Computed example of a mutant assay.
Amino acid sequence: MRVLVFGGGAVGLGLASCLAEAGVAPDIVTRQAGVEALETEGLKRMGILGKSVYRNVRAGASPEVFQENGPYDYVLVCTKSSATAQAGEELSQVPGLIGPGTSVVLCQNGWGNRERFAAFVDASKVYNARVITGFARPFSNTSHITVHVAPISMGHLDRPLNGELDPLADALTRGGLSCSASDDVGRDIWAKMLFNGSLNSLGAIFGVPYGKLSEHPEGLRLVRSVVDEIFAVMEAAGYRTWWDTPEDYFKVLTGELIPTAAHHVSSTLQDLKAGKKTEIDALTGEVVRLGELHGVSVPVNRTVLDIIGFLEKDCA
């Protein structure tokens, strides 16, 4: 099985480590510093799955490096959602990487990534993954896996699967992170939108891990307000998730999900501390955009979006 991981950040290195653990030697497109570290020290993994070092990986600073290795069976796009269109353009410009049997899986936060990527790559080849796993990258060749809240879910938003993602899901599962192919990935992604939308930005604004948001009534009220607005937008846009009401989801969020990930620091906060652009546009930004499109008022999400936008500029 040939797999190209496009993006050597926290998520890309984490998924690549699972493939390497399962005996699948991934090719990784990452920045030059990461290339050098991976080549000299290997891919390192730490955290809940223990410490390991993998030498069965190849790294390059651009997809052109791997042109002769294509076509790939799978291409995992692990960039920030803000770089989705750029990823699609770069991959589409290298002949032979994506062939007739290639499945491109977007392993990103947010909603709307598929549309941006499909401007450059045939939409029938583009799949989405829902990943609720805590990843950090303390060094350019190291993945720190802090929490695995739920199995990774992968599927196509427009049609049922025909077994094409099963080998990839099996490899990731054997590598340490449970994963399954699903015909309901859209529901899973909206569940992730609820999770990220209600915790990532608020945790970043207050500078706290997820668990702190549930320790005070003010935090719980803010989380609940965000959840209510996301639910209203989701339903107005014709999408569905696994809970019928915001009340049902809020019980699961506060009773099960937050306790599981209580110590996790959101990627949004990590990005702000590093002076990087966050994924707010694909998360809260999509909620605001869909709210405007469907006539749903989302004042709390709009305020959160503005605050994170301000902090992005102030931290840059």
Results as ranks from 00 to 15, higher is better:
5 V>P: 09
7 G>I: 04
23 G>L: 06
31 R>L: 13
32 Q>F: 07
35 V>F: 02
36 E>S: 10
37 A>C: 09
37 A>S: 14
40 T>K: 15
52 S>P: 08
52 S>K: 14
58 R>H: 12
62 S>Y: 06
67 Q>L: 12
69 N>F: 11
69 N>E: 14
78 C>G: 06
85 A>E: 08
85 A>Y: 14
86 Q>C: 09
95 P>F: 11
100 P>R: 14
101 G>W: 14
104 V>H: 04
104 V>P: 03
120 F>R: 07
122 D>F: 00
127 Y>T: 04
130 R>S: 10
132 I>P: 07
134 G>H: 04
136 A>I: 05
138 P>F: 05
139 F>I: 13
145 I>D: 08
145 I>N: 08
147 V>F: 10
150 A>N: 08
151 P>K: 04
151 P>V: 00
152 I>P: 14
156 H>M: 05
159 R>M: 05
160 P>W: 07
160 P>M: 02
161 L>N: 11
166 D>V: 15
194 L>I: 00
195 F>W: 01
197 G>T: 01
200 N>D: 08
204 A>L: 03
212 K>N: 14
219 G>R: 01
222 L>I: 02
231 F>W: 08
236 A>T: 02
237 A>D: 00
238 G>F: 01
239 Y>R: 11
243 W>M: 04
244 D>F: 08
245 T>E: 02
250 F>K: 00
259 P>C: 12
266 S>C: 14
266 S>K: 09
267 S>N: 07
276 K>Q: 11
278 T>H: 14
279 E>Y: 01
279 E>I: 03
280 I>P: 03
288 V>M: 06
292 E>A: 13
292 E>N: 09
293 L>G: 09
303 T>D: 13
304 V>T: 03
305 L>I: 12
310 F>E: 14
310 F>W: 15
316 A>N: 15
